[in-house]
Design a protein around this nucleic acid. Structure first.
Lengths: 194, 194
DNA sequence: TTACAAAAAATGAATGTTCATTCTTTTTTA
DNA sequence: TAAAAAAGAATGAACATTCATTTTTTGTAA
C-alpha cells in the first residue's frame, strides 16, 4: 500500500519532469539522465516504470491527453442545446489550456512533430468523441456548418493552442476579454449564419 | 561562377534534406550524417556551409519562412480593399501550404517546438508585416474585429497549418470545396458582423 | 510486537553505441 | 601551381540502456 503509493508518486514525478524538460528544451535535448535528476530518481529507475524513452514519451502524451479531455467534458451533458454545449466545452478547454499550460504546450508539441507513435496519437484522439458527436448533432440541426470534424477542430479549438504558445513566449496576454473575443471568433467560424 | 553555382546547389540540397528528414523523423532523429547522405555530400562539407547543426536548422527555418511570405504577398497590393486583400493573401497562403507542404510542415514543427533560436523566430515574424498592416487598416475601417494580431493570426491563418498536417497524415483531403469552406470560416472568425 | 529472510524496488557505475565536429588528405578550381 | 572545396576517417563527448549491488518492503514465525 505504502509501496504502491510511492510508486505512483515516482511515476508522476517522471511524467512531470518529462513534460517540463521537453517543453523547455525539446525532445532532442532532454536526456534520460536529466529526466531522472529532475524526478529525483536514478536513471535506472525510469526503466522500472517505462520500457524506454519512446515509451515514456508515448505514455506521457496519452496521460496528458486524457486529463485534457476529461477536464473538457466534465461539465457537459448531452441534453444541452448544441450552442450551449459547445460553449460549455469550449470554455472548459480554454480554462484547461490556461491553467495547465505546461500540459497544453506539451500536447501542442506532440501534435506537430513525429515525437510520438502513430498508435499513441490515435489513442489520444478517441477521447474527443463527445465533441465530435455534438458537432454531428449541430450539423443535423442546421446550426453548425457541414464541415469535416478536422476542419471544425482546426477553427474552433486549435487556435487556442497557438495562443497558449504565444502567451508563453510573452507575445500575448490572454485575459477574460481576450478569451471572450476568442470564443466569438471560434463560434462565428463554425456556426451557420442566418 | 561555376563554383558558386555548385555551392548554391549543395546548400539547397542540404536545406532540402534537412526539411525532409526533420519532417519524417523529427529533429531528435536526424543526425548530420543522414543529412549529408541525403544531400550526397560528406558530413564535413556541411560545416563549410553552416556553423553547426543548430545554425543549419535556424538558416533552414529563415529560408523557408521567407519563401512562404514572399509567396503569400506576391499578388497583393495595398490599393486593394481590406476584404479583397485578405482574400488574395489568404488564398496564396493556402496555395503555398498545399503545393509546398514539406515546407509548411517544417514551419509548423519549428513554430511549436524549442527547435530553433528565439532570434531566428523573430527574424521570421518580420516578413509578415504586410498582413499585419492590412489587419490594422481593416480594424480602423470597422471591417475587422479589433483583436490583437496574434488572435487574428490564430483564427485566420493558423488553422491551415493544422489542416496541412492532418492532410499529410491522411486524416483529411483538402480540395477546392474544403478550401472554400476554410476560407469562409477564416473570414467569418475575424470580420465584423453587420 | 519483534526478528528476519525472501522478494521487490532502487541505485550508481559500467557498457557500447551514436553522433557532432574536427583533422588530414585528396580533388577541383582559378 | 597555389588556393579553395570536398572528402573520409578519426575523435571525443553524450547518451540510452543494462548490470551488479544495495536498500526497502513484505509476509511470516516466534
Amino acid at each position: 500500500m505504502a509501496a504502491l503509493q510511492k510508486s505512483i508518486d515516482k511515476r508522476n514525478a517522471l511524467i512531470n519532469a518529462t513534460i517540463e524538460l521537453v517543453n523547455n528544451n525539446g525532445f532532442h535535448a532532454t536526456p534520460m539522465s536529466k529526466i531522472a535528476k529532475m524526478a529525483c530518481v536514478s536513471p535506472a529507475t525510469i526503466y522500472l516504470y517505462f520500457e524506454n524513452k519512446q515509451d515514456l514519451v508515448n505514455k506521457t502524451y496519452i496521460e496528458v491527453k486524457s486529463k485534457y479531455t476529461e477536464y473538457a467534458f466534465a461539465t457537459y451533458d448531452e441534453s444541452m442545446t448544441v450552442e450551449k454545449g459547445f460553449e460549455v466545452i469550449w470554455k472548459r478547454i480554454a480554462e484547461f489550456k490556461m491553467k495547465e499550460c505546461a500540459n497544453s504546450m506539451f500536447l501542442a508539441q506532440c501534435d506537430n512533430t513525429p515525437m510520438i507513435d502513430e498508435a499513441s496519437r490515435q489513442e489520444g484522439i478517441k477521447h474527443l468523441q463527445p465533441l465530435l458527436d455534438l458537432w454531428r448533432r449541430g450539423i443535423k440541426e442546421g446550426v453548425i456548418k457541414p464541415m469535416s470534424e478536422y476542419m471544425l477542430y482546426a477553427y474552433a479549438i486549435n487556435p487556442l493552442s497557438f495562443l497558449v504558445i504565444a502567451q508563453n513566449r510573452g507575445s500575448v496576454q490572454l485575459d477574460e476579454p481576450q478569451l471572450n473575443q476568442a470564443y466569438e471568433a471560434a463560434w462565428n467560424s463554425i456556426k451557420v449564419c442566418e
